[in-house]
Nucleic acid binder design. Structure first.
Lengths: 187, 187
DNA sequence: TGCATTTCTGGACATTTGTCCAGTAGAAGC
DNA sequence: GCTTCTACTGGACAAATGTCCAGAAATGCA
């Protein structure tokens, strides 16, 4: 649980509170192609990624539409399903072997109401998530696929190196054929 | 402040707590074309819309790109700017005369930390916002403009009736010319 | 009511993006 | 070392979407 201790330590928790928080998570391993969240099932956990790459996607007319990929040291959630306790509209799958520190909703709620400061931490986490998702939504409307690609080149270079271009194309909202054209014109 | 009293009453607040909450807001009127939030300035408030239509947009190459429109009885915010206290990337403007109950951040924080239950309310509001924004982002990647239009027809009929099609086209990510084609093929 | 302004539609053509596919290169397994 | 699989590129053509624009319809205002 080392990463988790470090993370919450940096967030200002210590002693019994830190232990209480860390003990509420459990580390689960996933092999390449394992599902973490499956379409139609309600997601009961959120988590902090210890290592690995996880692909969020939906099947449409038999095709995978990737809308997000998370990497290590970031939070992981099928937000809509977890928050509203409804069946997930998406699949989340391990693209590599990896592991995630998971926590379920009852335990999360307990931390929020019982551990001093955790409530402020959770509000901060929600606010950060909103900023990230809102900015991403903003870019989808305001920027072209080429501009989004250029933005990723500078803002997420480590992600770009790790994931196959076909997934990236899907995230950008274009076909692999077209991403190839975009990459070609940039050179 | 009637709408606000009703709203927070339905949320389970009463007596002194309800009064304390409502008194933290102030009603501000806007005339058509007034700016509520201006590009480059940090947004200091969030609010609850008493009445009116408010357009969120950005100027790109001299053109307005509308990414959202809020209507009465919903919450209003330039989220990224308000939360992260950075200059707004967007303009928000009144499309009609209207008014908004506004609250600033210090007052909001006080309510969160001092009024019993407000903290849970605020977490719920953030969670609801995340669900809405995430679903919208999801649709932008997974659905075509035509599918998004059909979805709005059933999910937001009142909004469709109120806003000019040019703004709707922009929200859907197409030109007015193309929205006209979409509407034509649907008939 | 009538004029001015804004909004909406759709034609003609240009550009962008997708589809289908074949070829190459590199990685993985035996 | 050879085969097999997967990822990536780019050609040729098709389909979707944008640009420019003019006329029609709707709306606001005097």
């Amino acid at each position: 649980m080392e990463k988790l201790v470090n993370y919450f330590g940096q967030m200002g928790f210590e002693g019994d509170n830190l232990k209480r928080i860390v003990d509420s998570f459990s580390l689960q391993a996933f092999e390449k192609n394992d599902f973490v969240v499956e379409f139609g099932k309600t997601s009961k956990h959120i988590g902090f990624i210890n290592n690995g790459l996880f692909q969020y996607y939906v099947l449409k007319d038999g095709e995978e539409k990737t809308h997000y990929i998370s990497i290590e040291n970031t939070w992981f959630a099928s937000l809509l399903s977890f928050i509203s306790e409804t069946p997930s509209q998406e699949n989340i799958r391990a693209l590599t072997n990896g592991s995630i520190y998971l926590i379920n909703k009852p335990n999360l709620k307990k931390l929020v109401s019982e551990v001093p400061g955790f409530n402020a931490f959770y509000i901060g986490l929600l606010e950060q998530s909103i900023c990230g998702i809102d900015a991403s939504r903003f870019d989808l409307i305001v920027l072209t696929a080429e501009e989004r690609y250029l933005k990723m080149l500078t803002s997420d270079p480590e992600l770009l190196q790790q994931i196959p271009l076909q997934y990236l194309a899907s995230m950008l909202g274009v076909t692999p054929r077209h991403l190839s054209r975009i990459r070609n014109t940039i050179r």
